[in-house]
C-alpha cells in the first residue's frame, strides 16, 4: 500500500478532488486533507462526532468527587478543631471542590482532544509539512493497489493538483 498526494492552491479544487475520489470508491478513512488554515469536516462524516464535551463533564465530576473525598477524609484524619468550625466544613470545601472540578474538566478535555485529533502519534503527513506551510492544501490518499493509485493520480491531475 502506498500513498498518493496532491497539493492544491484553492479550497474548491481540493474539495472537488475529494468528492471525485469518493466517487472512485475511496472511503473517507483513506482520504486525509491537510491545510494551514482551519477547514471544517463534513458533518455527515463519521469522524465528526466528538466526545470532548462529554469527557470534560466526566472529568469535572471526577475532579469534584476526588476533591470531596480528599477534603473530607483528610480533615477527618486530622480531626483538629479550628475556630469552632465543624471538622467537615462544606462551605469551605465547596470552593476546593469547584476548583478541582474545573481542573478535572480541563484536563479531561485536553486528553480527549489529543486522542481524537490523533496528536502525539506517528502518522501520515510528516513529509507534506513544508508544502502545507506554504499555504497549500494537501490531499493524501491511501491506495491499496496500483490501479487505485493510478485512479487517484488521474483525479488529482483533473483537478489541477500539483503531485508530490
Amino acid at each position: 500500500m502506498h500513498t498518493k498526494a496532491g497539493a492544491f492552491d484553492k479550497v474548491n479544487e481540493a474539495t472537488m478532488a475529494m468528492n471525485r475520489l469518493r466517487m472512485e470508491g475511496f472511503t473517507p478513512k483513506d482520504i486525509t486533507m491537510m491545510s494551514s488554515e482551519p477547514l471544517p469536516l463534513d458533518e455527515d462524516d463519521e469522524k465528526s462526532r466528538s466526545l470532548i464535551w462529554l469527557f470534560s463533564i466526566l472529568g469535572g465530576i471526577l475532579g469534584g468527587v476526588g476533591a470531596t473525598l480528599l477534603t473530607t477524609l483528610a480533615s477527618k484524619q486530622m480531626n483538629l478543631v479550628t475556630g469552632g468550625m465543624p471538622i467537615v466544613a462544606p462551605w469551605a470545601f465547596g470552593i476546593i471542590v469547584f476548583e478541582m472540578s474545573a481542573l478535572g474538566a480541563i484536563l479531561a478535555a485536553l486528553g480527549r482532544m489529543v486522542y481524537e485529533a490523533r496528536l502525539l502519534r506517528r502518522g501520515v503527513g510528516a513529509e507534506y509539512g513544508s508544502v502545507v506551510a506554504q499555504g497549500k492544501i494537501v490531499v493524501a490518499v491511501d491506495c491499496a493497489d496500483e490501479t487505485r493509485a493510478q485512479n487517484a493520480e488521474r483525479v488529482f491531475a483533473s483537478c489541477g493538483a500539483e503531485m508530490i
Binding site: V81, T82, G83, M85
Partner: peptide, 16 residues
C-alpha cells in the same frame, strides 16, 4: 473558643 486565628492557618499550626 471560636478563635479567628485558627481556621485561617493553612497548616494546622494553630488549633484548639
Amino acid at each position: 473558643q471560636e478563635a479567628p486565628c485558627e481556621p485561617v492557618c493553612p497548616v494546622y499550626a494553630t488549633y484548639h
